[in-house]
């Protein structure tokens, strides 16, 4: 590594890459939705698409302008909070998304709150008692969860908690917020499902990070001088594994994006993902674009965050 690449340069470089990625991603989203489907005016008018009507609508929507101009226009609008008008019901997209976004963030937030401590505990535990029954059971469960689609985790959770045990309502989401108990019940299934999906990744990565530190010679030294296994992991290995673990947490949270799409659809949860899936079936392109950008931005933020944490956590980069 050249000496000029100090900490700040690395961070700046990473942020720069994130920004370029964002532009490319928005480019891809815009062109996938604007250019591939053919003439939007034709689609919108459907049966009523006389040549005059199509021409008029194209003029009114600004579709006659060059694509690159429309892209820049869209991008500037996006950056200033103007998300466009929905094709289907003529409402501003920002208004449609507003409450839904809060709902999705709530779901993601609550899941994170529960999943992170549990996953860290299990991951560190599995690393500490590596090779034990506990480790093997945890590893097998995580691999199983990772190898099956998210909707299967959801159907299994419904089968177990709602059908067999009868603890929770199955597929209903009533917006009933009259008491704590009902809110808790409504959130329980989506949170459980999403929690399983992201904790599985987190447990695996945390375990790998801790085991990697355990394999270093200074930790072995601690064991040799008589520290208990527990002390060796918690006092000697863990502080150095914190960086990789934080990196793993941020990276696993990016799985929330994919998980949320499935979970919201299954449980009929009124979030952005449900909105987007519905928009896909009505081909409401401005709405799809905005939702897609929201997901891409959150995904990108989490990935970049993970990288930044990895850079910041490496003390070798701090003193140059």
């Amino acid at each position: 590594m050249p000496a000029s690449l100090n900490l700040y340069a690395l961070i700046a470089q990473r942020l720069g890459i994130a920004l370029i990625t964002l532009v490319i991603v928005s480019f891809a989203v815009f062109f996938a939705t604007e250019l591939l489907p053919g003439d939007v005016a034709q689609i919108l008018l459907g049966q009523a698409a006389t040549p005059q009507a199509v021409a008029g609508l194209r003029e009114a929507m600004g579709l006659n302008q060059p694509a690159i101009y429309r892209f820049l226009h869209w991008l500037v609008g996006l950056a200033s909070g103007d998300l466009g008008i929905s094709y289907v019901n003529n409402m501003p997209v920002a208004k449609l998304i507003g409450d839904r976004l809060v709902n999705s963030l709530k779901l993601a937030g609550v899941t994170t709150l529960f999943a992170v401590p549990i996953a860290l505990g299990l991951g560190i535990g599995a690393a500490m008692w590596r090779g034990s029954i506990f480790d093997r059971v945890v590893s097998m469960l995580t691999i199983s969860v990772i190898s099956v689609p998210e909707f299967m985790v959801a159907t299994l959770a419904v089968l177990i908690f709602a059908v067999w045990l009868g603890w929770l309502p199955a597929l209903s989401y009533g917006a009933d917020v009259s008491s704590w108990a009902t809110v808790l019940r409504a959130y329980a299934m989506p949170v459980i499902t999403l929690g399983f999906v992201i904790s599985a990744q987190m447990i695996r990565m945390t375990r790998a990070a801790v085991i990697e530190t355990i394999n270093t010679s200074y930790v072995e030294m601690a064991l040799l001088k008589g520290a208990s296994r527990r002390r060796m992991v918690l006092r000697h290995a863990l502080p150095n594994a914190l960086g990789p673990i934080a990196n793993a947490v941020a990276l696993s949270l990016s799985y929330l994006v994919g998980g949320v799409i499935i979970v919201e659809t299954i449980f009929n949860y009124p979030g952005v993902a449900k909105l987007m899936v519905d928009a896909v079936s009505t081909r409401d392109l401005p709405l799809i674009q905005s939702c897609a950008m929201i997901f891409c931005v959150s995904h990108l933020t989490l990935i970049t965050l993970a990288d930044l944490i990895a850079i910041l956590a490496n003390p070798r980069l701090r003193h140059r």
Partner: peptide, 24 residues
């Protein structure tokens, strides 16, 4: 490499959704 790395920044299920929305 840079271009394809940027492509990796799009969540896979989401990309599928967008394309299916666009072309059926």
């Amino acid at each position: 490499s840079r271009l394809l790395d940027a492509f990796n920044g799009i969540p896979s299920l989401l990309f599928g959704l967008v394309v299916v929305a666009a072309v059926g």
